[in-house]
Design a protein around this nucleic acid. Structure first.
Lengths: 183, 183
DNA sequence: GCATCACCATATGAATCATACGGTGTAGAT
DNA sequence: ATCTACACCGTATGATTCATATGGTGATGC
C-alpha cells in the first residue's frame, strides 16, 4: 500500500467503480466507451493495469476468479472513496487540451499547394462534426425520454455545445473560402 | 534516411520551419508557445528530439554551431516540403480529443459529498474560461488591427468559439445548480 | 465433436511525457 | 577587471502511456 499519484485515469476508474459497484476491467472498458471515452480516449490496456495499481495502493479491492478467464473484479474501499471525494472537492487545474487534427491542418493551410485541399478539408470536417452532433442529439433525446437528468447528461450537453461550435466554425471557413475564391 | 511515420508533432515542426524558414529548436518552442501550443501542448523536449528524427529521415537539413551553445539550425528539404504538402492534401482522420479536467470532475459530480463542491467547480471553471476568452479576444483585435487575415487567425477564431461555448456551458451549470438548490 | 466467432486478458516494445540538470552568454555591480 | 546573478539554451532520465499483437475461454450452430 505505497502511495501513488492519481492521474485522471485513476479518477475515472475509481469514479466508475464507485458509481456502478464492483466491476471487471472489461466492464469498465464498456462504460468508458460510451461516455467520456467519446472525447477523452483511453487505450483499453490501461483499464487493466490501472485498477491493479489502485488495488496495490489500497484504493480498490481485487477479487480474482479461480478458473476460466481469471476475471478480476474490483470494488472500491473506504480509502478509495475518500480519495475520490477529496479529488472532487480539490481545486481543479484549469489547463485543458483540444487535439483536433483538422484544426492543425487548417493552421498550416497557407502551405497547401491547391486551394481545393482546404475546401476538401472543410467539407470533410463539417460532415464529420455534423454527424457527431446528430448522434449526440439523438442520445440526448433518448436520455430525456428516459427522464435522465444526471451529470453524465450534463457532460453530454457540453459535447453538444462543442459540436455545434465546430459545425458553425467549419461552415464559416467554407464561406470565407468561397468568397475569397470567387473574388 | 530511413522511413519514419509522421506524427502530428512532425507536421508541426515541418510546418513551422517551412513557414518561418531555418529555425532552431528554441525558436520552434517560442513559435509553438503562442499559437497551437495554446490548446495542443508539446513538452519542449520533443521540439529537440523531433527535428533530429526528421533530419535523419531527410526531411530537414541540420546545421550545427561549432562553439558556444551548439545550436542546431534546421531548414526544410524538398522531401520535407513534399511530405508536408501530401499531408495537407490527404484526408484527415476525424477523431479529436478534448481533455478537460473540469469536465471530467463534473461527470462524476454525483459522487461529490457537498453540493458546494460543484458550485466551486463551476465558478472556477467559469472564471478560467472567461479569462481565456478575454485573452483570445484581445489577441484577435490586435491581429485585426494589424490587418492579419491568415490561417493562424482562423484557428484562433476556433479558440474563441470554444471558449464562448465553455463560458455559456458553465454558466448554465451554475444556473441549474442554483435552481436545484433553491427548490 | 468440431468450427467459428465473440468475449476477455495480458505482454511487448515503442513513443511520449514531466522534470531535473547542466552548460553559455551578458549585464550590472563592485 | 572580475564577479555574480539571471536569462537563455540544450540534453538526459526514468516513468508513464500508448498502439498493437497475441493468446486463452466459452457459447453457438452445425
Amino acid at each position: 500500500m505505497s502511495t501513488v499519484n492519481l492521474t485522471p485515469t485513476s479518477h475515472v476508474v475509481l469514479g466508475l467503480i464507485a458509481r456502478k459497484g464492483p466491476s471487471t476491467s472489461y466492464e469498465l472498458k464498456a462504460a468508458v466507451a460510451n461516455s467520456i471515452g467519446n472525447f477523452w480516449p483511453f487505450p483499453h490496456a490501461q483499464l487493466y493495469t490501472e485498477p491493479a495499481r489502485l488495488a496495490a495502493a489500497g484504493y480498490l479491492n481485487e477479487e480474482r476468479e479461480e478458473g476460466g478467464r481469471h476475471r478480476r473484479t474490483y470494488s472500491i474501499t473506504d480509502s478509495g472513496r475518500q480519495a475520490l471525494a477529496e479529488w472532487i472537492a480539490a481545486p481543479t487545474p484549469t489547463g485543458y487540451e483540444v487535439r483536433d487534427p483538422g484544426l492543425l491542418k487548417l493552421f498550416f493551410g497557407d502551405l497547401a499547394q491547391a486551394p481545393s485541399d482546404l475546401e476538401a478539408l472543410a467539407a470533410a470536417q463539417l460532415e464529420a462534426h455534423a454527424t457527431r452532433l446528430e448522434e449526440y442529439r439523438e442520445l440526448d433525446r433518448l436520455l430525456e425520454g428516459m427522464g435522465v437528468h444526471d451529470h453524465a447528461r450534463t457532460t453530454l450537453s457540453f459535447g453538444l455545445v462543442y459540436e455545434e461550435g465546430a459545425v458553425r466554425f467549419w461552415q464559416q471557413v467554407q464561406r470565407e473560402h468561397r468568397e475569397r475564391g470567387s473574388r
